[in-house]
């Protein structure tokens, strides 16, 4: 995937370096492993975005593997809970890929996915507190992500804040 992004952003990289002097040292330093990653839109997966990318990657693996094991071994126990964990895993996967690829389009995808994630975790959190009989087994999003140190509710908020900031920088770079 790194090679792909190289093809996307090679021209932008040279331009970005000339246009945004404050970014230049960082761009030069990061240029060796991933020269393209510094092009305007790709920045959603850089800096703080890279930390988010790491967390979303971990959660993708955790939620998907958990739901796959549960669905394949004891699906009838708690169908809704396991399907919700699967849905959560898919949303995490979408955000991970979007952060990895970068660009304006990926930023929009990530914004939608983070919003869906926030709605999901709040909705499921309220439901599990109000009517716990609907969820005989835990999901990733139960009780606002209590089982995962509340990261499921913290991550989308951080994600939305970061995407908004990165979007402003992106527009700034395009306008310059």
């Amino acid at each position: 995937m790194a090679e792909e992004s190289t093809a996307d952003g090679t021209e932008d990289t040279a331009m970005a370096r000339q246009q945004t002097p404050p970014q230049a040292p960082a761009a030069a330093e990061a240029a060796a492993p991933a020269p393209a990653a510094q092009s305007g839109g790709a920045r959603i997966g850089q800096g703080p975005g890279r930390l988010l990318l790491w967390f979303y990657g971990v959660f993708t693996v955790a939620a998907l593997s958990r739901s796959i094991v549960q669905i394949s071994t004891k699906f009838s126990d708690a169908r809704l809970a396991y399907l919700l964990s699967l849905a959560a895993g898919i949303v995490y996967a979408v955000i991970t890929v979007a952060l990895w690829r970068g660009g304006g389009q990926a930023r929009k995808v990530a914004l939608v996915a983070c919003s869906a994630e926030l709605l999901g975790v709040i909705g499921v959190g309220v439901l599990t507190l109000a009517d716990s009989s609907a969820f005989p087994d835990q999901t990733v999003w139960s009780d606002f992500g209590y089982g995962y140190v509340f990261l499921p509710v913290i991550l989308p908020v951080m994600g939305l804040l970061w995407l908004r900031k990165a979007g402003a920088e992106l527009r700034g770079a395009e306008a310059a």
Partner: peptide, 11 residues
Amino acid sequence: LTERSRWGSAI
């Protein structure tokens, strides 16, 4: 390694 900043340490 791909994020040579404080955020790489945070990861």
